Computed example of a mutant assay.
Amino acid sequence: MVRVLGRVTSINVRKVLWALDEIGEPYLREDWGLPGRDPKVPEFLALNPNGQVPVLIEDDGSVLWESNGLLVYLAQTRGALLPEDRRALGLALQWLGWQASELNPSWGYVVPGLLRRMPGYDDPDKIAEAIGRWTGTMGILERELEKGRPFLAGEVFSVADIAVGLSCHRWFKTPFEKREFLAVREYYERLRGREAGARWMPEDYG
């Protein structure tokens, strides 16, 4: 049985768990990641030299890491969660890459400061600047979703929706006054209507 190493409060771990649930593949999860089990120890670094979760270990012992890469790997090896149409496939991969390169970095100061309450992330000017940047990035997503497609690649739910959906969950769960993005809200609720979506975008953490 495939093993997933990582804590469920990690958005990147939840990407992999959501994908496995959508595929219907059983797995074992081992709790790794601060504040519980430090991934910087030699045992974990031998699996992922970056000391970050998630790590996926296949039945044959092969080890892979990096959450969005794992989403594509699972989709390709399990024959699910990526569209067959080439243009739709391109859209799915486009938005998956955008989540990592544009959307994810935009919350880099806000989430530690307002959601995690971490020391050192309490500068009000930096928080305001970061909120503006995050809001602008979410505005890009809003304009895309206003085109009326149910999912980012079109009619088919894909790994892009897992990554971006979890990012939307983080947006709604981080406490600050937000601009109302109606299309994003409808998209988010659509994803939470899926059994695995509801499981991995819970009310109690973002």
Results as ranks from 00 to 15, higher is better:
W65A: 12
V63D: 11
G97F: 09
L89H: 12
V111A: 08
R116A: 14
L89S: 00
W65P: 06
T77W: 12
P83K: 00
E58G: 00
I57M: 13
P105T: 07
E102V: 15
I57D: 07
L115P: 09
G69S: 12
L115I: 06
D59Q: 12
R78E: 11
G69R: 01
P119K: 11
L103W: 03
M118P: 01
I57G: 01
A88N: 03
V55Q: 02
E102P: 03
D85S: 06
G51S: 14
R116Y: 13
L93Y: 14
D59G: 06
V111Y: 12
P54V: 08
R117P: 08
V111H: 01
V110M: 05
L81H: 05
L114H: 09
L93T: 05
G61W: 07
P105A: 05
L71M: 00
Q94Y: 14
A100W: 08
W65G: 02
E66W: 04
G120W: 14
S101C: 13
N104W: 09
S106A: 15
L64Y: 15
Y73W: 13
P105Y: 04
G108A: 15
L114C: 05
R116L: 11
W107S: 02
R117S: 03
G113I: 03
G108Y: 02
T77S: 15
E102Y: 04
